[in-house]
Amino acid sequence: MSVRRAASRVVGTLVSLGMVAVLGFFLFRVLPGDPVLTLTRGRPVTPGEVARLRHEFGLDRPLVTQFVDYAASLLRGDLGRSYFYDQPVARLIAERVGPTLLLTGAALVLSVSLGVWLGQWAGWRRGSAFDRAATAAAVVGWSVPAFWLGLLLLMAFGGPLPTGGMVTPGSDASGAALAWDVARHLVLPALTLAAVQFAQYTLTMRASVLGELGEGYLTTARAKGLPEDGVRARHVLPNALLPTVTLVFLMLGQVIGGAIAVESVFSWPGLGYLAYQALSAPDLPLLQGTFLVFSATAVVSNALADVVYRLIDPRLRGT
């Protein structure tokens, strides 16, 4: 990647991060009119309490001052204080990053390997029974709401497998026993998340393979005496994988945000569940914090996708 291009990409990413911050401010401070009313909706509060809260959140100052304060604390890594937990939002979020990465990572590995495998063969054997079945499975999987699938799995396997949390409550297991316990808790949420995600990898992979089938270089490879499996593995795959790999990176941020519903169903102690709790409280500073983290992750993973694409496609190297 040329220096110029890299620089413009970095600047673009920083601008997007700035836009995330502005949007966060606008959403949670400006749009509600009075965040305190949103915060205290459905709760009996005295005018005095409201005034105290307004002062505490700095809402009695001009918007510009509020924004400058907000931006300054963001740069310091200060995301405010949770109303519900009465703890710094940044610390709450930091605690939840690990479980979310574990869940989404497991789901990602599952869905990408399944999707790439299915999509590859579906495209290669276009029109076959396998193709029709894989495409149908992908389209149906795409149409299923994740949280409902979670509920179904709970209903079906809720007995033999744990139904919520990441570890058995009250257990003081450690080492291998702890890992086993976590793994058992991980099965259902990871399966749910993977089941609703594999569809897009399948369909993208299939479309990419189909796009390569008419290419002249496959005839060249066959003419050289390469068997069909070699044509597929050595020529079609390296080309068809490019869009899928990029998609994986593009989706990183989306997947983490998308885990909200699944984590809520399974009370998985990750960022999504935290967002859900903030929503139910309601706890605006916490909601704002999770919003910023989800969006920033998406922006960064999008920039990463661009870098990865340029690294793996020789046609784009050095551009």
Partner: peptide, 23 residues
Amino acid sequence: LRVIDFFVVVPGLVLALALSAVL
């Protein structure tokens, strides 16, 4: 283009969640 790209990147569910929470 920048606005489009931004909204493509920001997770829609997260944004919709925030919007419906504050309105």
